[in-house]
Design a protein around this nucleic acid. Structure first.
Lengths: 329, 329
DNA sequence: ATTATTTGCTTAACCGTTTTCGTAAAAAGA
DNA sequence: TCTTTTTACGAAAACGGTTAAGCAAATAAT
C-alpha cells in the first residue's frame, strides 16, 4: 500500500488518513497527495475487523418487486447513505426457512443492525430474539413480531381497515368482503379487527366467510376471487388488504363483467403510483412506505449510536385513504 | 470462540468447519456439535480479509422504486443467493456525482464484482474503467457504457422502438411522438433510431420536434405533455420510452379529455404489473427485467469464477410488445 | 526391528487496518 | 546546560479467521 511507497509505517499512514493530531502537517499532506493520486481507499473489512463494525445494515424483506417494499428501501437508503452506512438486501420470498438462514448468516457480524419485515410464514421469533441477545439492534417495520421487545414502525392497520370499511358502508355497501393473505401476521389481525369494528359500529354482523384468506399464488387467488364474485351472493364491497390482491379482484371483475363501482366497490391497500390510472381508478389505503423506511432506519441508527431511547410503543405512522373511482359512481 | 472451549486450536476448528480431510471424524463432530449448539457463524470479514474475497456483489442502480429495477434485483438475487453471495444495493438517484462516490467506495474491495446500470447523467466512464483495471469484474445491464469493454446485458432497444412505432403506424397513426428522458444514454439513442427507422420505412418523415426530451421531474413533464397534447397539432400516437412517462401522458390526456385510443394511441416501455388494469389498459413494450438481472449476475459470476468467456457482443434479450387497449379501438 | 508414510493436530504467518505504547528528536523550561 | 515536555513517528499487538508448514504419534512398508 502507500506505506512503503512513502517510506512510512502503516501506522503513520493510517493516522494521516484519519487526520490524527499526531501527524505533522507535512507528512499528512504527503500521504493525502499520494492517496489521491493512487485513488487509494482503505479496505473496509480490515478496518471493520479491527473496530468490530461493518458500517452495514441488513434489510430483510419478503420481496422487492412490490411497490411498498421498494419505497421502504428508498427510505432506508436515504438515511443509511447520510450516515455513511451500506445496505444489504436479503429476500425471504415469504419463506421462514430462508428467513432463518439469513438470520443465521447475520450472526457472523456481517451487519451492525437489522431492519426486518418478517415473512408471512414466520411464527417462531426465537431466531430473531437470539440475534438480539447477541447485541445486534433490530428494528421491525410493517410486519412485526409482537413478542419481541424492540423498536417497531408500523402504520395504523386497525384504523385504516376500519376507515376503509366505514367508507364502503357509507357509500351504500351492505356486504363487504375482506381479502387478506397471511393469517399469522399481526397486521392481518389488526386489519381484520378494524373491519369487524366498522361493521358492528354500523349494526351489521360480519360473517366469518366474508373474511377471505387468499394465497401468494395468483392462480389460486384467481379461482378464489372469481368464485367470490361469480357466486350467487357476491359482496357489493371488497377490501384488498394487500397490493397483490388488487390485480386479482380487478381481473376477476373484468372477466365476470362485474362493474366497478356499480356492482361492487373496491378499496385496495396499495402504494402503486398507477392507482389513479387504473380502470376505474382505485380508491386506496396508501401506506407511508418511504417514511416508514426512513423512521425505521433512524430508530436503528439511534440504537447503533448508543442513544437508544426505546419507547414502549411502536411508532405508528398513519396511512391515508385516497378516494377514487372504484368506490364512487 | 469455540477453540478454547474445546481445548483445540483455532486452526483445527477452522478446518473442521470446512470439512478438511486433515481432521478426524471424531473431533470434526465435536466441533460441529458445539458450533450448532452455540449457533456459531464465522466472521465473514475476517475470512474475507484472509482470502481476499467478500462474497458480495454490488448492484448500482439509478433508483429502486421502479418496477424494472425492482425486478432486476429479484433476478440478481436469485443467482447471488444460489452462489452464496450477498448483494449490496447502491442508488445513484440519477446523479453522476453519487455514482462516482459509490464507485470510489467500491475500490476498497467491499465487493468482488459490480453490476451497474449507469445514471442518466453519466458521460465520463473513466471511474468505471479504473475499477475494472483494478481487477474488479463489471457487468453492465440496460444502461451501458459503450466504450467499456466488458460484459453487457441489454434488450433490443432499437428493434423494440421500431416495432412500437410500426405498431402505431399500422393502427393508422400519422404522427407519432417519442418521449424519452436521458439524451446521453445509449438506450435512448437506440430507441430513437428504431423510431426513425420505422418512420422512414413507412415513407414518413419524422420531425425533430416529435422526439421529445422529458425530465425526471413530474411537474416539468406535466407541462411538456399537456403542451404537447393540448397544442393545435397534437400527435395521434405517443411512445413513452420510460415507465415514469406513462403516468405523465395518461394524466395529461385525462386532464385534457383527449381520448385514448380514440384521439391518441399510446405505447409505454413498462414493466408495471398493473398495465393491464389501466384505463385504458396499456399497450406495452415489456422488458425481460428478471431475466436481465439473472443473466447479468450469471455473467458476473462466470468472471468471478475465472471462466470468463467474454463474447464481444452484448447479450441481447428481446422485449415483447403486448398489445392492449391503448392502441386498439 | 527399522524406516517410511500417513494421520491429526498445533504453531505461526498472514490478510489490511487501527490503536496502544514506546521512543527518539525537537522544543521548552529551569 | 540540563531536565522536562512536546512532537512525530515506528513497533507491535489486535481484530477473527485461513492456510502452509511443522511435528509427534500411529500405522504401514521393508
Amino acid at each position: 500500500m502507500l506505506a512503503n511507497a512513502l517510506q512510512l509505517s502503516t501506522a503513520t499512514v493510517s493516522k494521516a488518513l484519519t487526520n490524527s493530531h499526531e501527524i505533522s502537517e507535512k507528512t499528512r499532506q504527503r500521504v493525502l497527495d499520494l492517496a489521491k493520486e493512487l485513488n487509494y481507499t482503505p479496505n473496509p473489512y480490515a478496518s471493520g475487523l479491527r473496530n468490530k463494525k461493518s458500517r452495514t445494515i441488513a434489510v430483510i424483506l419478503p420481496e422487492v418487486a412490490d411497490s411498498y417494499f421498494a419505497q421502504v428501501i428508498d427510505g432506508v437508503e436515504a438515511v443509511a447513505q447520510e450516515k455513511g452506512y451500506h445496505i444489504l438486501i436479503r429476500l425471504t420470498h415469504e419463506s421462514c426457512r430462508k428467513e432463518e438462514a439469513i438470520l443465521q448468516d447475520l450472526r457472523g457480524g456481517r451487519a451492525d443492525g437489522i431492519l426486518i419485515s418478517v415473512s408471512s410464514e414466520t411464527r417462531d421469533s426465537s431466531p430473531i430474539k437470539e440475534l438480539q441477545e447477541k447485541g445486534i439492534p433490530i428494528v421491525f417495520f410493517d410486519r412485526v413480531c409482537e413478542d419481541i421487545d424492540t423498536a417497531k414502525v408500523v402504520t395504523d392497520d386497525f384504523e385504516s381497515a376500519r376507515k376503509a370499511t366505514e367508507h364502503l358502508l357509507s357509500r351504500g355497501c351492505k356486504r363487504v368482503a375482506l381479502l387478506f393473505i397471511s393469517p399469522d401476521l399481526s397486521i392481518s389481525h389488526q386489519r381484520i379487527e378494524g373491519y369487524k369494528k366498522a361493521m358492528t359500529d354500523h349494526q351489521l354482523s360480519w360473517r366469518e366467510s366474508d373474511i377471505i384468506a387468499c394465497t401468494h399464488d395468483p392462480v389460486v387467488n384467481h379461482r378464489i376471487l372469481t368464485g367470490l364474485m361469480g357466486g350467487p351472493d357476491a359482496p357489493d364491497g371488497v377490501i384488498a388488504t394487500v397490493e397483490k390482491l388488487v390485480t386479482g379482484i380487478y381481473l376477476a371483475c373484468q372477466e365476470l363483467r362485474v362493474r366497478i363501482p356499480g356492482q361492487v366497490k373496491v378499496i385496495g391497500f396499495s402504494n402503486l403510483p398507477s392507482a389513479m390510472l387504473l380502470n376505474p381508478s382505485l380508491t386506496t389505503i396508501t401506506q407511508p412506505a418511504f417514511e416508514m423506511g426512513k423512521e425505521a432506519a433512524s430508530l436503528l441508527f439511534r440504537e447503533l449510536e448508543g442513544k437508544a431511547v426505546r419507547q414502549k410503543q411502536p411508532l405508528v405512522i398513519p396511512s391515508v385513504l385516497v378516494v377514487r373511482g372504484s368506490t364512487v359512481l
